[in-house]
Amino acid sequence: MTDRIVNGINVSKVYNGVAVVKDIDFWVKKNQFLTILGPSGCGKTTTLRMIAGFEQPTSGQVMFEGVDITAVPPYKRAINTVFQKYALFPHLNIYENIAFGLRIKKLNEKEIEKRVARMLELVNLKGFEKRKVHSLSGGQQQRIAIARALVNEPKVLLLDEPLGALDLKLRKEMQIELKNMQRELGITFIYVTHDQEEALTMSDKIIIMNQGEIQQTGSPTDIYNEPENAFVADFIGESNIFDGIMPADCRVIFADREFECVDSGFQTNESVDVVIRPEDVTLSKPEEGALTGEVISVVFKGVHYEMLIRESARTWMVHNTVMAPEGTKVGLSVMPNDIHIMHKEG
């Protein structure tokens, strides 16, 4: 318990009668990189804002280093935030923006100067002290926002979709830089995003939220390989999701056929969701596959081809480095451990 630096207990938030966050428990350990991932409106930003102190939970507690901070105002928390649209102060120059928190702590000018300089170096923006906020590009403003938060040496840094406004290339660069910063500084990061790829690359631990509830918590590999339900499977990478029935342990019927699988512990003849990743489908000659289908579209995705294959009443998405042209008849096969069985929701 004591290594949980931030711990939310039974946290709920209701706005105008609508439950945005529904009784969730979450925690992050010291020096971890936690990502809260989910589609827009899933309650992830509200959760972050409750950790920062901008919102009060309707019920539940937020603990910080074992102390209840639910009622502590944001300015008394050892937590800093990097805002979605940076929220840099337009009336102050870059130096004063970064120095803002230090001035409130009434540090002496020499110390402030030293720390601001170190931060500017950290974010690769040396010499920008006197610049105005609006003369900076989006990426540069982003770095300043990070520097402004980090200069206060917070124990936890909250980041609310900080890379959302940047273009793809810059986003990739910043992902790596953020991860490096987190490792070097040894600060706990809580990162909110709707971008599953971002979450998978940077995090030590991911919390997936949907409609105010936590769907799954785990490491990126756990979540990618062992999604707990169809929502997670679909949200983390694209997936083929079919209706199926479990006649017995390690047996599943879907696509009008019985397959061998590795999941067990379901009721006999329970209706289940069958999840198969597009890259786990093997293509072959029609007579060699477990199922046969016809390629109906092919799109080149840079490294692999994305093919849609019509098999009876179903459409399969298949990723493969080898292309089968449109109209070709192909065979489809899946290894038993690539068939993921999930309880139906609701």
Binding site: A52, G53, F54, P73, P74, Y75, K76, I79, N80, T81, F83, Q84, K85, A87, L88, F89, P90, H91, F100, G101, I104, K105, R148, A149, N152
Partner: peptide, 27 residues
């Protein structure tokens, strides 16, 4: 005025009065 500027100031340790003096009023 962008409300996140006020939140940012609070986040950086400014209480209500400081937020007014250093952010709201100048803006």
């Amino acid at each position: 005025m962008d409300n996140s500027l006020i939140e940012a100031a609070e986040d950086l340790g400014a209480n209500r009065r400081t937020v007014f003096r250093k952010v709201t009023f100048p803006l």
